[in-house]
Design a protein around this nucleic acid. Sequence first.
DNA 1: GTCGGTGCAAATGCTTTGCATTGAT
DNA 2: ATCAATGCAAAGCATTTGCACCGAC
Lengths: 146, 146
Amino acid sequence: MTAPLCAIFRKHLKSRNLKYTPERADILNAIIERDDVFEVEELLMEMRAGGYRVSKATLYRTIKLLQEAGIINQALFDARQSHYQLIYGKAPRDYLVCIKTGRHIEFSSDDLVALRDQLCRKHGWDPVGHRFLVYAISPEGRDQAD
Amino acid sequence: MTAPLCAIFRKHLKSRNLKYTPERADILNAIIERDDVFEVEELLMEMRAGGYRVSKATLYRTIKLLQEAGIINQALFDARQSHYQLIYGKAPRDYLVCIKTGRHIEFSSDDLVALRDQLCRKHGWDPVGHRFLVYAISPEGRDQAD
DNA sequence: GTCGGTGCAAATGCTTTGCATTGAT
DNA sequence: ATCAATGCAAAGCATTTGCACCGAC
C-alpha cells in the first residue's frame, strides 16, 4: 500500500514540475503509518518525536499537495470557518466532487435516504439529516494531463 | 416552514433557560430567508444591508445555538483547520453523528459503496472515495431534556 | 436585584505568506 | 545559473472571549 501511494504522489509532483523531496516523503510516510484521522499539529509532534525535522510551513504546504493528488482529504468532521446551511426538515443535498477540477454536481437520491434510515434504525437512532460527498474524477478531469 | 423552526428554536432555548431575543429571531429569519449555504460574514452583511443591527459576536453565538437545536449545520464543504485522513484506495469511513450529544459511531456499508458507484457511473464519473455523515439522534440524546 | 444578552475590542489559534537561504539539475 | 524547497517569523483571518452596560422577570 505504501509503494503505490508514493508512486502516485511522485507522479502528481512530476506533472506539476515539483520535486519529491525527503521532507515530502517523510510526511507521506508519517501519514501512512498513522493511518487514521489526524490534526496537523498532532502529526507534527509525532514526526518530531520520531526524529523527523520538518517545519510547520512545509507540513502545511505538503498537505495541500497531498490533497491535490487525491491521497488525503479533509475529514470534515469538526471544522472551523465553515459554511452553514438550514437542515431541519430539508431534503439533504448531496454532491459529486471532482478531485481534479473541483467541479461539483448536486444531486439527491431516495435510495440513499432509504439506506440512511435503515442504517439508523439498525442502531436505534433517529435520522435527522445527512451529508454525502462523493469524490470522483469527472470526464474533464480524466482528460487532464497527469 | 418558518413557524415550526421558530417554535423549535424557542423550545430549545427554553430547555436551556435561555431567551428568545429579537436578535436571535432576526438571525433565524435571515437564515430562513436565505435558504442556502451561507458564510457568517456574508450573512452579517446581508442582515446589515437589510437594516438589521447585530454584532458579529452575537451572530456567532446564535449560530452555535442553532446548531445545537439541530436547525442548521456546517456545510462542511470547504473547511479550515480540519482533520485530515488518508483516502486513496481506502474503505471510506462513514459516521452516524448524534446532534444532541455529539457521540458518533463509525460504520461502513457495502450497499452505500454500490450506490455511490452507480451514481457515479450514471454521470460518467470515476469514483475515488466518499464521505457520508448521518446526523441523527442517539438513544441517549432522545432521553435528554429538551 | 439577579441573570442572561449584547456589542465592542482584544485575544486566540490555525493557517498562510514573505523572505533569505539552501539544494538539485 | 536557474528554479523550486525549506525554515523562520510575521501576517492573516475566522472565531472566541472578557468586560461593561442593558433589559427582562
